[in-house]
Structure formats: C-alpha cells, structure tokens
C-alpha cells in the first residue's frame, strides 16, 4: 500500500514538473509551482508516516502555508507590479492581452 502511495505521489510530482518546465504561459508555471508545493506537502506527510516521525506533519502544514503565501505574492506582484498596493486604488490600466497570455 505504501509503495502505491509513493509511486502515485512521485508520478504526480513528475507531471507537475513537466508542466513547470514546458508550460507555455505564465499562469501554467504559477499553477505548476503551487500544485508542486502541494505534492511536496503530501510527500513530507507520507515520509513522516513511513519513517515513523508523525511530527513531520507540522512541517508539512507550515510548507502548505508558505506555498500559499508565496503564490499569492507572485500573483499580486503581477497584478499590481508591486508588493505595496496603494491605499487609494488607482485605476490599473488593463493589459491588452488575450486571457491567460501575459506577455512575460
């Protein structure tokens, strides 16, 4: 059973890695990084279970938090070109690109 779980997680990591390596658009790569982070969380949880270290689950949860925050940071950066969103919101000029194809 554990072998099946290990193989499944490894295949999932490989697939998301392929998407991150090939991914034509920006958002493919962001999504690939985010879901790879989720797979890493699963992998650490699995590793802790197999090696008899259940306290690694805490580390896995912290990784999930870091993953979430960094994804939000990347997306916010590409929306506002800055980490500090102004308090009075200026109208941000809309990017004249096709949806999902930011020119990066």
């Amino acid at each position: 059973m554990t072998e099946i779980a290990a193989v499944a997680i490894i295949i999932a990591i490989g697939l998301t890695l392929i998407r991150a390596l090939m991914g034509p658009t920006l958002y493919d790569r962001v999504l690939a990084v985010n879901s790879l982070g989720t797979k890493i969380v699963l992998f650490i949880g699995f590793l802790g279970f197999v090696l008899g270290r259940p306290d690694w689950l805490d580390i896995a949860v912290l990784y999930a938090l870091i993953n979430f925050v960094s994804t939000i940071a990347i997306l916010k950066f590409f929306r506002y070109r800055s980490f500090q969103v102004p308090l009075h919101r200026r109208p941000v000029p809309k990017a004249p690109t096709v949806q999902g194809r930011d020119n990066v």
Partner: peptide, 23 residues
C-alpha cells in the same frame, strides 16, 4: 532563456531541496 520561468523553477528547486533536507 525566459527569466520568469527561471524564477519559478528556482522556487521549485529550493522547495525540492528543502524536502531533501527533511528526508
């Protein structure tokens, strides 16, 4: 050659090396 892809991949690189350190 695409710098954005390189930034994303370096994030993945450090995530996987962090997993390796846990292991």
């Amino acid at each position: 050659r695409s710098l954005f892809a390189i930034v994303m991949l370096s994030g993945i690189y450090s995530l996987i090396s962090a997993t390796w350190f846990v292991a």
